[in-house]
Design a protein around this nucleic acid. Sequence first.
DNA 1: ATGGCCTCCTGTATGC
DNA 2: TGCATACAGGAGGCCA
Length: 276
Amino acid sequence: MPELPEVEVICRGLRPHLIQSTIIDVHCSDKNLRVPLPRTALRGLIGQTITKISRRAKYLLIHPADSSLLIVHLGMSGRLGLFQAHDPLQRHDHVRWLLNNGLELRPNDPRRFGSVHMLSSEQARNRKQGFFHSCGPEPLNKRTTAELLHNQAQGRKQAIKTLLMDGRFIAGIGNIYANEALFATRIHPGKPAGSLSLANWQHLLGKLQAILHNAIACGGSTINDFLGASGESGYFQVNFKVYGRAGKSCSSCGQEIQKIQTSGRTSFFCPHCQQK
DNA sequence: ATGGCCTCCTGTATGC
DNA sequence: TGCATACAGGAGGCCA
């Protein structure tokens, strides 16, 4: 399930292959993703040279020369494969962008929880008020401070884990990294978000950033479906301390890692190390 | 404004 | 062995 580090790894992996290449054909499958494929707008990419690739939250942003914006979200089972144009198609290849360098970019998403969006140059220019208007601050941005998060969480009774996974509060954090960051700071996932002190937030944001940086350096986490842009696996999952480890022993105290539901999502934590 | 729950989807894991 | 069911999860929408 691509979270921020996985999308960042894909972004970096694609750059050398896509920048300065030109899209010469586009194919869409009949099936739609979570939102309908913008088929007409995607055809408009033909002839466009890609000038830049970036990331916002868990979205990959492909910038054509005409200042429009192609946005890809991989949902939880999506890959963004780069193939030779003659490589055989795979089941669940929903879109194909053929490039003038002989490569073809193919988002593949069995569960179709992902999405593809096309913004006009005007919509792209106004994306902070438009497409990304509800998108929270980037956790790795220097302007995202513990003071800001502490302030924003004031009065919130919601579980801290649920708030960390809320993209409007902070961008790009899914179940894996929310669980890992809370374990690293010994905070119980069900602790009300508003009860964290500024010192708690400083600790939590620091650990979260360290974990995200480490995961990016490891090439992301390979959980079921995720592969990096060139098809290679990430290795961060060997560093999981709690995620997916229910019933196994805590690396810090030896107690059994427990699994609970937090707002309908699975949380993993150590009942000894992480107390409310 | 807040928070909880539902929906989309299908491959994989589990249970009988 | 084979079938049926449960489960995983990001984001947006709905409702209390």
